[in-house]
Amino acid sequence: MAESLEPEQLDTYFALMESVSLLHHAVEQQVRSAGGLSYIQFQLLARLAGAPDRRLTMTALADGVVYSRSGLTHQAGLLEKAGLITRAPSTEDQRATLVTITRDGLDRVATILPGHIVLVRDLLFAPLSGKDLRTLGDTMTRVRDHMRAQPPRSVATRKRQT
């Protein structure tokens, strides 16, 4: 017989998942409305904007946003076609592709970010006290670090279909 979650665990799990879904939906709408991007595209551009030299490898991007390599390749193609990023082989590792945000990509992030910040403040942080915020931050950091202790998705082997 499978183990079950305690009622408090189950309630917490569903509250977390519903909150994440509601926040994700609102953020997706805001990003699309303000900048014509999907949330994953915004995540990629925001990560690049904050990276040293405003560039990362495709693998680092995939691991950072927890996205499949094939999905990232597709999204990067769309962003490159729109002139928001460039891709080039790494001079240090022949197997790696470097992704760099362009000036237009930085401008798009700057266009989206003000409304994004307001939305996140209103939906996520407004109902929290300073103590709540610290507790939530500490808790979610522990959960994230526990989950990230597993091998990154980008290095996971694919299961063959039979």
Results as ranks from 00 to 15, higher is better:
116 H>N: 13
110 A>Y: 08
93 D>V: 03
90 S>T: 00
139 T>M: 03
65 V>K: 09
33 S>P: 00
97 T>Y: 02
102 T>K: 02
80 E>H: 03
127 P>M: 05
113 L>V: 11
144 R>A: 09
106 L>T: 07
38 S>T: 15
36 G>Q: 08
43 Q>F: 13
92 E>F: 00
19 S>T: 09
158 R>H: 10
51 A>N: 08
139 T>C: 02
51 A>V: 09
45 L>K: 01
99 V>H: 04
50 G>C: 05
76 A>K: 05
26 A>Q: 10
119 L>N: 03
158 R>Y: 08
70 S>P: 00
119 L>F: 08
16 L>G: 06
115 G>H: 12
160 R>Q: 14
26 A>N: 08
109 V>P: 07
29 Q>A: 04
139 T>W: 00
91 T>Q: 09
60 A>C: 01
85 I>R: 05
162 T>V: 01
97 T>K: 04
17 M>Q: 11
107 D>S: 14
161 Q>L: 06
92 E>K: 01
6 E>A: 12
84 L>S: 02
74 H>T: 12
89 P>M: 04
136 L>F: 02
42 F>T: 08
38 S>A: 12
156 A>T: 11
131 K>N: 04
150 Q>D: 07
158 R>P: 01
109 V>H: 02
25 H>G: 06
117 I>R: 08
153 R>T: 08
84 L>P: 12
81 K>I: 00
63 D>G: 03
63 D>Q: 05
39 Y>V: 00
141 T>R: 07
73 T>R: 07
61 L>D: 03
95 R>Y: 05
8 E>H: 03
57 T>V: 01
99 V>F: 02
42 F>D: 10
